[in-house]
Amino acid sequence: MKPYLSIEKLTQRFPDGAGSDLTVFENASFGVEKGEFVVILGHSGCGKSTIMNILAGLADPTSGVVVMDGKEVKGPSLDRGVVFQNYSLLPWLTTLKNVTFGVKARYPDWSKAKVEEHATKFLAMVGLEGDVIHRKPSQLSGGMRQRVSIARAFANHPKLLLLDEPFGALDALTRGTIQDELLKIWGQMEQTVFMITHDIDEAILLADRILLMTNGPQARVAESVEITIPRPRKRTEIVEHPNYYAIRNHLVQFLGKRSKELAGQLTNDGETNRPEYVRIDKTEAPDDPEDKQPALRAVNS
């Protein structure tokens, strides 16, 4: 049974300027289930953003396919909403008009009043209400702009929501509040989300599963780490959870050391090159060898 979103042996090569090709990533394969929140972590240059652009349909891979809901992904579509790192709001439109812009594209036969009501509702869901929604993006703070961008994406009910380092340009405190807003709106919508980030704590807070990429060139998705912390999660409470630091250590070790060592190698599953599944759960009985093994191996290697 194929997952809802299936990325199969995706390869991207760019000319390196010296006559030959640079392979950014090779045979990257993974799946995302419906309603799942998946975060991808990896160093700069491993091609995360390129994968994001391919999923969005804004770029074409050199080889490999992306299949969503039984159909191959070709070109951009309203089924795949994107929140870009730099917000990508249209600066000549007001906040509300930026959201109605998307809603109108998604539901062309809705009346003007219905479109505005829908947009206002989603802006309120990310905490933007009243006078603020009639301001231009230039009159908003970075955090507020990113909220507008998130509201625009959620208001369109895409089958897949792509978040490209959405909080990368924000300060730590603002990032925290918007992460909470994102969790809240995601909890209400059962939205399938695929997100890029550099921030390990952010990934643990938000994700159901974290995909780890090896370093580029010839990067690939090496591991898929399940986040065994129950929802709803609060940033102040999850740090107390016994699994938190175990998972965090695993991620730090991977990014600090193993992402380099594993670069250019295939996974054990050479045929499909699916990532190795890792589950770390300290709350379960310690004599369960199946769950314990990958965690130990990961920490020791």
Partner: peptide, 21 residues
């Protein structure tokens, strides 16, 4: 490029992209 990408991800046709973005 970002604004053009916004139009593309919202499936706007070339004429609509030209006038609205």
């Amino acid at each position: 490029e970002d604004w053009v990408n916004v139009a593309r991800t919202h499936e706007l046709g070339p004429i609509k992209t030209a006038f609205t973005v």
